[in-house]
């Protein structure tokens, strides 16, 4: 009996590291959804596919061009950021003044296009990411053994998160981002180049998605062109649960989702098949109790 208790504690700790890393990945992607929504009131359905692209570009950098992993990662993150900016230019900017539904349909179309181009260009067969020793080492802490990547992911995420909060809250560009997300027309009247701010936002969101995609492939090294769909959906949920438009909310939602998913799989193995369903149930519950999300503010208009 005692022995079993110790086992359970170590299992719990082990799962906790898994939850922290999955939660971090969800957070990174959810931030992109929430930032774009904050500025354009658009759910960027192609965001999960941007995540997939980041992983593939890094894969080709390492596997085909034989670049050192860190160079490949930086290049992949940079290129994916540029891709995000391009996506906005091509698929969203021309529709800026159209009804919001057109923008949303364009987002869905962009998502399908990227996925299917992925199948054509990358091939439908899954690829496995080459092992990178730094991330692939098993570390033992007493009876708890952890894959090193599971510690790197939360650490990276925290650094990125603080950098992002610094940019948004303390820099001039961040101030412009907040202004545009509050009132685009008033921001124009302040001589803010709204297009530049929107491009910047897409760039940052896509960078984070790429980083998420790469880290994801360190942990789950199977790549396929449709790999972005489910994480994309989950992270959209995470952003909504946290309060869409709110960066801290996206992180909270991401961690919450990661935690629930891992713990359900670990401690209620009979329900493992339903682990995705738990995310949706959580979404429904949050929407019933607090429709604006956990950290979202109620929209009030002052006259």
């Amino acid at each position: 009996m005692r022995h079993k208790d110790i086992m359970d504690l170590s299992t719990f700790l082990q799962q906790l590291t898994n939850a922290a890393s999955l939660g971090s990945l969800y957070s990174l992607i959810a931030i992109g959804y929430t930032m774009v929504y904050g500025i354009l009131r658009l759910i960027n359905f192609a965001h999960g596919d941007v995540f997939m692209l980041g992983a593939y570009v890094a894969f080709y950098g390492v596997a085909s061009f034989a670049l050192p992993w860190w160079i490949a990662f930086i290049v992949a993150i940079g290129l994916t950021g540029l891709f995000g900016i391009l996506l906005e230019r091509i698929a969203y900017r021309p529709l800026r003044d159209s009804p919001r539904i057109s923008l949303m349909i364009s987002a869905i179309g962009a998502s399908f296009l990227i996925e299917n181009l992925g199948v054509v260009i990358f091939g439908g067969r899954p690829k496995s990411f080459p092992s990178i020793p730094l991330f692939d080492t098993v570390l033992n802490f007493g009876s708890v053994s952890v894959l090193s990547v599971s510690l790197f992911i939360p650490a990276f995420t925290l650094i990125i998160l603080f950098a992002l909060l610094f940019i948004v809250n303390r820099t001039k560009t961040g101030m412009a981002m907040r202004a545009v997300s509050t009132d685009v027309e008033a921001a124009r009247l302040m001589a803010i180049d709204v297009n530049k701010v929107i491009s910047f936002t897409f760039g940052i969101g896509s960078l984070l998605a790429a980083l998420g995609g790469i880290m994801w492939s360190m942990k789950y090294p199977q790549l396929n062109p449709l790999m972005g769909i489910m994480p994309g959906l989950k992270c959209f949920i995470a952003a909504v649960i946290g309060g869409i438009g709110n960066i801290a909310g996206a992180v909270l939602g991401g961690f919450l989702l990661g935690f629930i998913e891992i713990m359900v799989a670990a401690f209620l193995p009979a329900l493992t098949g339903y682990r995705d369903a738990f995310s949706f149930v959580l979404l429904i519950l949050v929407l019933i109790v607090k429709p604006s999300g956990l950290l979202g503010k109620k929209q009030t208009v002052k006259v």
Binding site: K172, M175, A176, R178, A179, T182, D183, E185, A186, A187, L189, M190, A191, I192, K302
Partner: peptide, 19 residues
């Protein structure tokens, strides 16, 4: 008015001087 409600008074003024 259209002030930026969730930004501080000081930040609103700084935005006027954005360019």
């Amino acid at each position: 008015r259209r002030v930026f409600a969730n930004l501080s008074v000081d930040e609103n003024l700084s935005l006027g001087a954005y360019a």
